[in-house]
Amino acid sequence: MKRRTSTITVLVLLTLIVLSVAYLLPIYVMLVASLKTPLEISQRRYLIPSGHLQFKNYVQAFQLVRSALINSSIISFSVTLLAAFLGGLGGYWLSRSRSTFAKVLFILVGIALYLPYQVVLIPLVQVMARTKLALTHLGLILSYLILNMPLASVLMGTFFLGMPRELEEAAEVDGANKLQTFFYVITPMALPAYASTAIIIFTQVWNEFLLALTLSTPQTTTIQVKLAEVKGSFVALYNIQMAAALISVFIPLVFFVALGRYFIRGILAGALKG
C-alpha cells in the first residue's frame, strides 16, 4: 500500500513538472516579449529578456485596450446574465414538461446546441447591420444570445432534471404558483448550476473573434478584435500586443476564480452522472 502511494506521488510530481513547463513557458515568452523594444522584437530571441525593460509598454497597452475591455465586459457580462437567466427559464420548462411539443422542442434545441456560428454568420450580419443594431453593444449582445441560448437552456435543464420534485410539490401545496415556485424555491438551489453555465457561456463570448470582428465598429470593438489590431499590419508591435494580452487576461481570470468553487461541484455532477 505504502509503495503504491509513493508511486502515485512520483507520478503527480512528474505531471506537475511537465504541465508547469508546458503552460509556464508560453507565459514566460509573453512576459519577456511584452517588455522589449521593437528592435529587440525583430531580433526574434524569444527566450532572452530585454536589455532595457520597457515598462512603459504596459502603460501604452492599457491606454489602447481600455475601451475595448469595457466593451467586452459589457457584452460578455450582459450575455452571460441574460443567457443564464433565460436559459434557466427555458431549461426548467423543458425539464418539467412531458408533452410532444416539449420533445420536438428538445430535439430542435439539441441540434442548435452546438451549431457552429459560421453557419449563420452571413444572415446574422445582414440582420444586425440592416437593423442598425450592429452599431451598438446590443447588436453583439443579441447575436451572442441567439447563438448561446440553446446551450444555456440544456445546461440548466440538465440540472433541474436531477433535482427532486418533492420541494416543488410542497411549494404547490402551500399555494405557490409555478413562477413563485421557480423563483423562490428552485432558483436559490440552482445557484451552482447558474455559476457553471455562466462560466461556460462567458468563456464562449469573451473569446469569440470572428463575429466580433465582422460586426466591429469603433464603439463596440471587443478585446479580441483589439488585441489582433494593436499589433498592426505595418510595424509589428508584438511587445504592445503581449502587454495588452497580459492586462486583459485578468477580467476572465477574476471571474473564474470568483465562480470557480461553484463550478467544480457544478451541474454535471448533479444530473449527468451516467
Binding site: V125, R130, L213, A228
Partner: peptide
C-alpha cells in the same frame, strides 16, 4: 479584416 467589416456594412446598406 477591414474588408470583412466593410463588406458586412455595405451589403446591409449601412
Amino acid at each position: 479584416s477591414h474588408r470583412v467589416v466593410l463588406q458586412a456594412r455595405l451589403s446591409a446598406g449601412l
